[in-house]
Amino acid sequence: MKALLLSAYAADSHRYWACGLMAHLDAIDWTAIELAPRHFQWRVRGNPLSFMSEHDETLSHSFDLIVATSLVDLATLIGLYPHLGRAWRVVYFHENQFAYPLGPQQTRRIEPLMVNLYSALAADRVLFNSQWNQDSFFEGVDGFLKKMPERVTPVRLETLKAHSEILPVPLWPLEEVPSAGQGAPARIVWNHRWEYDKNPEDFFAALETLSDKGLEFELVVMGQVFRKTPEVFEQARARLARHITCWGHQTRARYLEALGRGGIVVSSAWHEFQGLAVMEAVQHGCVPLVPERLCFPEYYAPEYRYDGSREALITRLAQWLTAPDTRPNPPDLGVWTWPQMAERYRRSLDGSPGAGAD
């Protein structure tokens, strides 16, 4: 089977998934095309032009399967290359723009919403990385269509729901499994993108409160860093300097090495459709502390969750720092690794009758 893998905004998590897909479904003859993760508004609406400009020859070939991320304007691309419409088409939603939180001084633009919707409608199968992602997408589509000047109810929407499936981004298996509860209990890890939607304000405010109370802890702040980052990062770096042992973007090897030392990996995010950064930290021996919202209840038992407030985060961290024996062991995420999930992916990418059904 010849397959074309299209990624219109190749952020770290998207590349992690794409590389895993090609490595663990290696019986498929893959051709991958990606665009750099920058200039989001231009990228999301202009990616067919970029694909055409940079990869016209490749797109002119025939494929049996097309797998595209949800920011690929698949409907337009098929219009420009009609023969691609004969392939089995799968769209993967790492996130959806209907549930993406707005940053300071941002307004909701319809172009990303329409690209998500049209790409889903142009697909034979739509995959979501969490139930939260799927539910918020269809709820968002319903609310969006109700705002249109004319009454619009595409008949394909119900078919689209029937052809949708929850299929998380699998974790690459580890050569050596960390022992339960390894690492220093007073080590706190942040390993998310340095952007507003990850809500770094609550995280750093909680740590400053703990520091002011005289609690001792080691702070590790990593993750993907962009040209523009929230000011709170530099402010926190100054205020929490005595606790910091690692700061900033790391090479992949050093990043994994830092996770392997264990500790508490914290999320305070306002936006998370799977939380791959937390999952990867847990896989390497960290104990998760995540809010009671978004996708997190799908993946973590109540003992790893707090109610989402800053006060609850402070309370739980203080408890785990002062009484380490109350901290649970890391959960087992083996069920979400490629060896366990590869067959489900094979079925979903198979366009034969009955394929993909559980």
Score class of each variant (00 low, 15 high):
Pro297Ile: 07
Glu176Ala: 07
Val152Pro: 03
Gly356Pro: 02
Glu216Lys: 08
Met222Val: 04
Thr322Met: 09
Lys161Met: 07
Val155Met: 12
Tyr345Leu: 07
Leu210Pro: 04
Asp197Pro: 09
Arg344Ile: 10
Pro154Ser: 10
Pro101Val: 12
Thr69Gly: 13
Glu175Lys: 09
Leu313Trp: 00
Met222Thr: 10
Glu292Lys: 09
Glu54Arg: 15
Trp172Thr: 10
Ala27Pro: 06
Ser13Cys: 02
His83Asp: 10
Val335Thr: 12
Gly20Lys: 07
Asp73Phe: 11
Gly356Lys: 13
Met222Arg: 05
Leu349Glu: 01
Asp26Ser: 12
Leu65Ile: 15
Tyr92Arg: 13
Glu165Asp: 07
Asp12Lys: 13
Arg125Cys: 12
Thr322Cys: 08
Ala36Asn: 14
Val44Gly: 00
Glu292Val: 00
Tyr16Ser: 04
Gln97Phe: 13
Asp325Lys: 13
Glu257Thr: 12
Arg254Phe: 02
Ile244Val: 15
Ser53Leu: 15
Met341Val: 08
Arg293Asn: 06
Asp12Gly: 05
Val225Cys: 13
Val169Cys: 02
Asp142Val: 04
Cys295Gly: 00
Gly223Ser: 04
Ala186Thr: 10
Lys228Ser: 04
Arg15Phe: 14
Ile78Lys: 15
Ser119His: 00
Pro112Asn: 02
Phe128Asn: 02
Lys146Glu: 12
Ala122Cys: 14
Val189Trp: 10
Arg237Cys: 04
Gly20Glu: 07
Ala120His: 11
Val115Glu: 01
Ser267Leu: 13
Ala301Asn: 05
Gly46Asn: 05
Glu34Ser: 03
Pro178Thr: 03
Ala27Asp: 13
Arg346Gly: 11
Tyr196Glu: 08
Glu298Ser: 02
Pro154Asp: 09
Pro48Asn: 03
Val91Glu: 00
Ala32Lys: 03
Pro170Met: 15
Tyr9Gly: 03
Ala10Trp: 10
Pro149Asn: 12
Val278Ser: 05
Leu349Tyr: 05
Tyr345Pro: 02
Val335Phe: 02
Gly140Phe: 13
Leu167Gln: 08
Glu176Val: 00
Ser211Ala: 14
Pro200Glu: 01
Glu231Gly: 11
Val44Met: 05
Ala281Asn: 03
Met279Val: 09
Pro104Met: 15
Arg305Phe: 00
Pro200Val: 00
Ser164Cys: 13
His14Ser: 11
Leu6Phe: 08
Ser211Asp: 15
Ser50Gly: 05
Asp135Lys: 01
Tyr100His: 14
Arg109Glu: 09
Phe93Ala: 06
Thr58Ser: 15
Arg239Ile: 01
Pro168Met: 00
Pro331Glu: 08
Ser267Met: 13
Glu218Ala: 00
Val155Gly: 09
Tyr306Thr: 04
Cys246Tyr: 04
His94Asn: 12
Pro48Leu: 05
Gly79Met: 01
Val225Asp: 01
Trp132Met: 06
Phe98Glu: 15
Ala27Lys: 06
His271Lys: 12
Arg193Thr: 07
Val169Arg: 01
